[in-house]
Amino acid sequence: MFLRAFLPLLLLLGYGVAQAALFGDSETREQLEALRTKVLEMEARMQRTEEVFMGQSLIELHSQAEALKEEMGKLRGQIEVLEDENRSLRKRQKDFYLDLDNRLRQIEPGSASVSVPDAGISIPASELPAADIKNTTPLKTPVILQLPDTAQRNRYDAAYALFKDGDYSGSIASFESFLSQHPQSALAPAAAYWIGNAHYAMRNFDKAISAQQRLIETYPDSPKIPDGLLNMASSQVEIGQKAAARKTLENLIANHPGTEAAEKAKRRLGSLK
């Protein structure tokens, strides 16, 4: 493009020289001829340059680059999705492993004798597999929960809907009947929790406490435990058992670190003076 800007000047030059030629000097005339040829040459070169542009090769190249960019974006997106799937698969695998490990521990005779100590038979620690030694803290037999079927879920949802509508006694009755019929359902711990919560909402704090107590004893591994403890502490505060509430909150903070309930417990503990 520089050439292009230059062209007028060159033409100007030619024009000026032509004028000069009027004064007549053969040497000047020769130089003039040479210049004219040069100008023509340059014009031809420019024409070619232009043709390259107009031939659109650059534009083609550019649109190919754009298409490649788009393609790369799609590939990048696929990689991102695969990475995410990989991450969640690994997590699920870990969960499966832990679950399986838990179940095996109950079946394996060695560990069973540790987790359910029997006064009649004693096995020297040395005979136990090394891996199981750390398991000497008494394990409560975990309840193996089953995934709820649609009927169970519907019943649970109905009981929960009653709670949301403020029909607490209706909700308690529904959850209790759910709990007695499906104690092994994966929804059972939540049902137990909401019973306590509904009692709390009705300001029946003693009942709220015993309901949460039941949750903790029946489903010690449930993720509902922290919320249950929090609710229990609130109930204890309401009936004036501040020391017990403090203990409950401390237990919650110590055993369920990182949960939202534990965070709330910390704040509440601060104001429980």
Partner: peptide, 22 residues
């Protein structure tokens, strides 16, 4: 460039027309 400016100075009265050529 010098040459051009010199020469175009000679032809200043025609400068207007050059724009058409341009």
């Amino acid at each position: 460039v010098l040459a051009i400016s010199l020469l175009s100075a000679c032809a200043s009265d025609n400068a207007q027309q050059t724009s058409d050529v341009e």
